[in-house]
Design a protein around this nucleic acid. Structure first.
Length: 272
DNA sequence: CCCAAGACCTGGCGGC
DNA sequence: TGCCGCCAGGTCTTGG
């Protein structure tokens, strides 16, 4: 479900309700997520603490308290919602953070690829975060970086831009969309793409992600942001999920193939 | 170091 | 209806 725009939408949705409130309890019904949820650590370190800030790094949501940080990843199918205390618990509602406001921050994740972890100090140094590339919407990410990192790389450009060491937050949907808008064939070897094309691609990646965030993310299945509102970006998708249908630009049938085990849709006429 | 494939899970869908 | 194979927004881990 969540790519960066969906995670950022979630962050913005929950921040007003979570920031500044005190954690009264942590309830873990299913500790077997991507990694075991450290129940004891969470209860010892979070309960009685005030959440100072709700941040995002890549697709990780970070809830800071005085002595450390709660790390949440939504995986493929996770979502975070605020519900009133006492709301019935569903089959895939694995973790609750109960707040002194009477609300509960609830993690739902059917596929359990998500994660809930604790880090006792500078969270940027957590092994999962330490080697991430730059945030796509900052000046640290640009076409020069893409060009430089891509030299001598033989993997496809799509896999290259989806690699979190290159830049974070470009998932399967937005990689396909950005490459379509940039007119680049997703199968192209990263190292064979020109500097000029990378400059344009970086601008497009920023634009696509920023616009998706503005629209509240892409709603696939039942994604909703923390405020319960659906996203509307799916109405803007040019290629993702449209294999076999006509290209909006040239009319040719969009094709689908696999790159790095991921479905990849592109236009044989507009992308080369 | 680079790269591809495997692994982790559940649920929904199309086909027979 | 029921079962089977395939597919799905991520990314760590393994093996060549």
């Amino acid at each position: 479900m969540p790519e960066l725009p969906e995670v950022e939408t979630t962050r913005r949705g929950i921040e007003p309700y979570v920031k500044g409130s005190l954690v009264t309890a942590v309830v873990v019904r299913q500790a077997r997520l991507r990694w075991p949820v450290p129940v004891e650590l969470l209860q010892q370190n979070l309960v009685g603490q005030v959440v100072d800030s709700v941040r995002r790094r890549a697709k990780y949501l970070l809830l800071d308290v005085a002595d450390g940080c709660l790390i949440v990843h939504l995986g493929m199918s996770g979502s975070l919602r605020l519900v009133a205390q006492g709301v019935a618990v569903g089959k895939h509602d694995h973790v609750d953070l109960c707040l002194d406001t009477g609300q509960v921050l609830r993690l739902t994740d059917p596929r359990r690829f998500g994660a809930v972890l604790w880090h006792p100090s500078r969270v940027e140094q957590h092994p999962l975060l330490a080697h991430l590339g730059p945030e796509p919407l900052t000046d640290a990410f640009d076409g020069e970086l893409l060009f430089r990192l891509s030299r001598k790389r033989r993997q496809s450009i799509k896999q290259f831009v989806m690699d979190n060491r290159t830049v974070v937050g470009v998932g399967n949907i937005y990689a396909a969309e950005a490459l379509f808008k940039a007119g680049i064939d997703p199968r192209r070897q990263a190292g064979s793409v020109s500097r000029i094309r990378y400059l344009r691609l970086a601008t497009i990646i920023k634009d696509v992600l920023a616009r998706a965030i503005e629209q509240g993310g892409t709603t696939l299945k039942d994604f909703v942001g923390g405020d319960g509102k659906p996203g509307y970006f799916q109405q803007q998708l040019q290629v993702y999920g449209r294999a076999g249908e006509g290209c909006y630009r040239c009319g040719r049938a969009l094709r689908q193939l696999k790159l790095g085990q991921r479905a990849t849709v592109y236009c044989p006429g507009c992308q080369s």
